[in-house]
C-alpha cells in the first residue's frame, strides 16, 4: 500500500500517523510538504494529520485547505483515492469542500483532551471494515474546534446514507447529533476528530486504532 502523509506548517501528529501506517502496513508513507503541488504517483492513501496548521488562523484548517498540495488532494479524491483526515485533517477536509459541514469551537469553549467512547455507526467502509458495526471503542480526542455543524437537511442526508461513521457515545463537544466522523458520498474520503493513530501499541494505553489501518491495508493492498 503506497501512502502519503501531508505535512502542513503546524502539523504535530504527522509522525504519529506515519508510524501507525508503517507499523500496520509495513511500508512507510511518503511525507509530502504542503507547498508541493504534485503528489507522488500511484498513491493508495493520502492522510492529513492532526495539529494546528497555520496556528488555526482565520478558521481551523482554512489556510491549509488553500495550500498548493490540496488541489492535488482534491483531484486524487475525485479519482477515488482514499483520503483520511484526522482532527485538524478533518477540519482541512471540510474547509476544502471534500466533506460537508464545518467544525466550530467546542460548545463548552474548553480544549478537550481525553479518551472518549465512540460508536461504530458504519462498518461497511474501507476505513472501518475491521470494526464490528454498533460496537463501542475508546479513542483520545484533543481539540478546541470539534463541534460539528451542518444544516438539518445535510445532517439528515448524512444519517440516511450511512455517512455518519463514528458517533460520540455521550456529548463531548456539542457536535450536531454527536457526530465524531463522517465519510463522503462516494466512500473514499473520511474525516474524524478522534485520533486512531494514538492507539496502535499497548504501550499507548490501548489498540483500538489499529483496526482502521488494518482495514485500509486489507482494502488497498
Amino acid at each position: 500500500m503506497k501512502s502519503a502523509v501531508i505535512v502542513f506548517p503546524g502539523s504535530n501528529c504527522d509522525r504519529d500517523l506515519a508510524v501507525a501506517i508503517e507499523t500496520i502496513t509495513g511500508t512507510a508513507p511518503v511525507m509530502v510538504w504542503h507547498r508541493d503541488a504534485v503528489l507522488p504517483d500511484g498513491l493508495d492513501l493520502i492522510a492529513l494529520p492532526g495539529g494546528f496548521s497555520y496556528g488555526d488562523y482565520l478558521r481551523s484548517g482554512a489556510m491549509s485547505a488553500r495550500s498548493p498540495v490540496m488541489q492535488a488532494v482534491i483531484a486524487a479524491a475525485g479519482q477515488g483515492r482514499a483520503v483520511l483526515g484526522v482532527c485538524n485533517g478533518f477540519q482541512v477536509l471540510t474547509e476544502a469542500g471534500l466533506l460537508p459541514g464545518a467544525l466550530m469551537r467546542n460548545a463548552g469553549l474548553d480544549f478537550i483532551c481525553r479518551d472518549v467512547s465512540l460508536t461504530i455507526e458504519n462498518a461497511h467502509t474501507m476505513f472501518t471494515a475491521r470494526y464490528a458495526a454498533g460496537s463501542t471503542i475508546r479513542m483520545p480526542v484533543a481539540h478546541h474546534d470539534g463541534n460539528y455543524v451542518a444544516d438539518a437537511a445535510t445532517l439528515d442526508r448524512l444519517e440516511g446514507e450511512g455517512q455518519v461513521v463514528f458517533r460520540y457515545a455521550e456529548s463531548v463537544n456539542g457536535s450536531a447529533r454527536n457526530i465524531a466522523g463522517i465519510i463522503n458520498d462516494t466512500g473514499n474520503v473520511l474525516g474524524l476528530m478522534p485520533h486512531p493513530e494514538r492507539l496502535i501499541e499497548p504501550a499507548q494505553g490501548g489498540t483500538d486504532g489499529r483496526a482502521m489501518f488494518e482495514a485500509l491495508h486489507a482494502a488497498l493492498g
Binding site: L58, A62, T94, A102, M104, A150
Partner: peptide
C-alpha cells in the same frame, strides 16, 4: 467566497 468566509456557516 474562496477564503475569508466559510459560507457553510
Amino acid at each position: 467566497r474562496q477564503l475569508l468566509a466559510n459560507t457553510v456557516i
